[in-house]
Design a protein around this nucleic acid. Sequence first.
DNA 1: CTTGTTAAG
DNA 2: CTTAACAAG
Lengths: 258, 258
Amino acid sequence: MPYISTVNVNGVRAAAGKGLLAWLAATEADIVCVQETRATDEQVAAALAPALDAGWQLSHAEPESKGRAGVGILSRRAPSAVRVGFGSSEFAAAGRYLEADFDDVTVASVYVHSGDAGTVRQDEKYRFMAELGAYLSARTGDFVVAGDWNIAHTERDLKNWKGNLKSAGFLPQERAWIDELLAAGYVDVVRQLHPEGDGPYSWWSYRGRAFDNDSGWRIDYHLARGDLAARAKDAVVERAASYDQRWSDHAPVTVQYR
Amino acid sequence: MPYISTVNVNGVRAAAGKGLLAWLAATEADIVCVQETRATDEQVAAALAPALDAGWQLSHAEPESKGRAGVGILSRRAPSAVRVGFGSSEFAAAGRYLEADFDDVTVASVYVHSGDAGTVRQDEKYRFMAELGAYLSARTGDFVVAGDWNIAHTERDLKNWKGNLKSAGFLPQERAWIDELLAAGYVDVVRQLHPEGDGPYSWWSYRGRAFDNDSGWRIDYHLARGDLAARAKDAVVERAASYDQRWSDHAPVTVQYR
DNA sequence: CTTGTTAAG
DNA sequence: CTTAACAAG
């Protein structure tokens, strides 16, 4: 029943003015996970005012540091419960994790650091991965965590994999972490429904002609566990949402769950 | 003989793309003083490349702090000498003063701080004023200092003078400093040629409808001394240069010297 | 190449 | 309201 989409909006205030609102008005999704709102609760509500007026419910995890991170969940019906962050992690209030309970499913919106190989920001990414991994592995039941994981799992998940073997987002330790999540019972829903071929990519750099050349990365996943994973169908990356005018460097990843 | 213009370009890189280059290609001025290039020597040369290719000569005083200040002099013929800064001032390398000798005249391009009443930035402005005033008062001969002085001299030099009696740019101490320069032998050339009426303003805030309402300030002056002052004619503020598309919040102030 | 923050204007 | 630097992406 739930029709769930996830998209890194790369600044909700900028995205709202460029096409996010139109996309929200047109989508058939019931639940939309967003990442990188880069705004306070108040600013997000202001940017999405037309959507909220049209009935969308907003749950949001505000980032501590201004202009960074920030994740939210938009839903046609209000969730029965919302939880910001996970555990007593150093990232509890980082605006990187939010989960919401709906009648038939619990949905989380996650934003993993992009990282930068060999820097403190990569160490921070690893710490986040460790804590998030422990939290997710301990969870049971029907559950889907959708968001920007900033990790391409396999060679089929990025166009130029040979050139990125030492790049943040495709490092062995990062890829192994996705393996662990799958081993813990999570299913990469889009890959399950697209077992063959490369992609579909969900992020294209703004630099050069990356989008036109489809030189992208698949770093936005739905990781579902329990009964939910088997119910997934029609997983699509809405690349076309970016054709007219790009309103983010990511495209929505949308899955229908029966 | 010299036809001299001054304009605060408010970022030469932004201005070049929006109309400064077209204005330079069309102006009849022989010497153009510019302020707030907000760029290094190299960046200014790159931004003005088409103008330099067309024959304009560039002299530039690079700001110490990136993205701030920076003054230059563009001339159809190369100056015989160029001097950056004045004396051993704390502002010697601030990118706020540059003078160049031409066959028949010495021209300086100056950029006085905008200031902020009651803050350290206002104190800095006062220190700059004191040092510049001492330097200019000691000078003799034919000489013109053109630039952004960031001070409206009298009630006729800004639209809303009543509301700005306590604002930086119209403070008693600032206005008195202009009086001192005039007493030292400098002539406010535009005012001399426009003895009646308000303005002509040379700066309009980007906020609100300031430009459309001509709610501006006259803060860009040619201060000339010696024979030169008497030779001035046809002093105009080229407000029309901003009609199509504004490429700065200031307009060029152009004077023909016989 | 883009977003948002910041300082300066 | 705008410029440019910066940090992050």
